[in-house]
Design a protein around this nucleic acid. Structure first.
Lengths: 337, 337
DNA sequence: CTTAGCACTTGGTTGGGTAGAGTGCTAAAA
DNA sequence: TTTTAGCACTCTACCCAACCAAGTGCTAAG
């Protein structure tokens, strides 16, 4: 029994099953793929593959389907990265048009990725822990209400309306702004909370209370800025791809709404040599994603932000990986400006 | 044949069907509801109701289910608004805690509403067309890149990174900011685009090009600010509620992702005397929502922002309406500050 | 190591028969 | 005129048996 052919059989099984969604048998295999041997030989190979836990039979004497382990071996060793079609490249490149506002770009990115892969796409916002303070603004709105704005060097803007105890003059706010800026300009978001708490000591006694409230507001903004966020699109694809199979789409939607789960997962995903991460089925720590796979990669050189798709374990890994990688590359290019 | 009893029968059918999800027959009806008549009489009433198009039979000789028209009559005349349970009130009131940042509040609101109703919840952002310009900021980031920030009196902040042709000194930007503010302060977002285009004429010739780019950026922000947005939660509920019935959840998810559809719909919904809007099944202009109902109301006194839920036509209207109304009231109270 | 052949397993499909729920109608009762 | 009891009729859902097609594992021969 030849080892290379056995792997070839595994590849054929994965490809056929992904394509047909039905267990694939030895006979169909020799017909569709020109392996130079008979179905009996394939059967022997399949028995061996099953022995190794790479494929399994839903019921005695039915075709085989890949196991998580089988998919794993497939993506690790057997999948060749397919180049994208012209149409796909074109679809991605419409991303390049339009404004470069971060929200906007990520929104369009996630939609494109969802459309391209016919799966649920997720894009994590670039992390801002290391971003430095570029600008602070206090704007009085209604009585007692002040809008606190924090602008980072990365271009990210965080804001919040806070209630200061008393009416405050615009000039005083402007003065306080200068004091805050003098202390905080250039600090990272991570450093901000501790630094900001010392500022109120530097202001005149009469403005002390207001300054304390403002400091509190800024600390909150810093906290928000560090919080990771994701955008998502294509949940309808999930329903579509599973409407023939009565697969459990509910749990997956649940997990997707619990963004924390996804964020942790993306965080924990180890990248292979090409920078791609793939988590298959029960490799995933979270039960609700036991029948789902995640394909992700990071998208800004050096920084830790990720993007990817979530789909059924039975997905077209080569194409999906190619799409994810291509979109990540385009996005990196755009954000690099 | 008594008219009041006929309506009572309709109410009973709606209630039972919503509860059991199965066509309801005359016999079951007299057993569960103490109407003082026999099943034969009910059959006559049902025949009349069917004649009027209020109920229909999925197949000859099966129980009846309400039609869209039947639900309509039910919500218009038969549904009494149920008070919320203590647990529900408690769930809502956790909303009152925490920061009052608009994004944050709306996020928590939509989650609460989804959980409360077990349906897909949507919340429209407050509209900002009438909001006035309170503050403008230009912040240089990398070379050639300037972050343009527009702050409205409502507390809303819009920002975008633009690429100006050349490197620009911070002092020049500060000067330009003053010029822009002098012209634009207090204008509404609607007025901004035309006003902003005149500003570059007021600046020194050397700064003309930069000012023009900045003006362009501000105009874009004004456009974005006027754009309506919605947040959504609970799509998993959709899958759950329909997992036994092989109902078409795909189209609904589609429509939900096409936020424009929903926005237009919310826009167009007429409110009844209590301020509630209900659109049932095919009353909805959009085909993909033909099997869905939308229950909505507006949530800030006077302003046109809405919130509501989307669910199957077979939903518990009284409870849903009560939840939507209660959440809207709480939200209004919070935002009123 | 590969192959042909064969016995065996099993899920899916088809067709008939049945039970149950429900209807519409008619004729009598109120 | 309205309500009721009774009855014939019509479906759907369910079960069961038979059968078919696909596929396997095994054995023995090439």
């Amino acid at each position: 029994m030849s080892e290379p052919r056995k792997l070839e059989v595994l590849r054929a099984i994965v490809e056929d099953y992904v394509h047909s969604r039905e267990p694939v048998g030895s006979k169909a295999l020799v017909e569709r793929h020109h392996l130079g041997v008979s179905s009996a030989t394939i059967r022997n190979d399949m028995a061996a593959l099953e022995e190794e836990g790479l494929i399994t039979a839903p019921h005695t004497s039915s075709g085989r389907i890949p196991t998580d382990k089988g998919y794993r071996l497939f993506v690790n060793q057997l999948a060749s990265v397919k180049p994208l079609s012209a149409a796909e490249r074109r679809a991605i490149s419409v991303l390049l048009d339009g404004p470069t506002d971060l929200d906007d770009v990520l929104e369009r990115t996630v939609r494109t990725l969802a459309q391209l892969t016919n799966q649920v796409a997720v894009v994590q916002y670039p992390r801002t822990t290391a971003a430095t303070v570029r600008h602070i603004e206090f704007v009085s709105l209604a009585a007692h209400q002040v809008l606190v704005v924090l602008i980072l060097a990365s271009g990210k803007v965080e804001q919040n309306v806070i209630d200061i105890g008393a009416a405050v003059d615009d000039d005083i706010l402007a003065g306080l702004r200068k004091v805050f800026m003098a202390s905080l300009n250039g600090l990272t978001v991570a450093q901000l909370p501790s630094a900001v708490s010392k500022v109120p000591l530097d202001v005149p006694l009469g403005e002390h209370a207001v300054a304390a409230r403002l400091a509190q507001g800024l600390a909150l903004l810093a906290h928000n800025a560090r919080e990771d966020r994701i955008v998502m699109a294509g949940t309808a694809n999930l329903a579509r791809s599973n409407n023939d199979f009565p697969l459990s789409i509910g749990p997956v939607l649940d997990a997707l709404e619990e963004q924390v789960v996804l964020l942790r997962l993306l965080e924990a995903m180890a990248q292979d040599s090409l920078g791609m991460s793939v988590v298959i089925g029960r490799e995933n720590p979270h039960d609700s994603l036991a029948e789902a796979s995640v394909v992700a990669t990071s998208y800004v050189r050096g920084e830790n932000a990720k993007l990817g798709v979530v789909g059924p374990t039975r997905m077209d890994y080569p194409n999906t990986m190619a799409s994810v990688r291509a979109v990540a590359q385009y996005l990196s290019r755009i954000l690099a400006g």
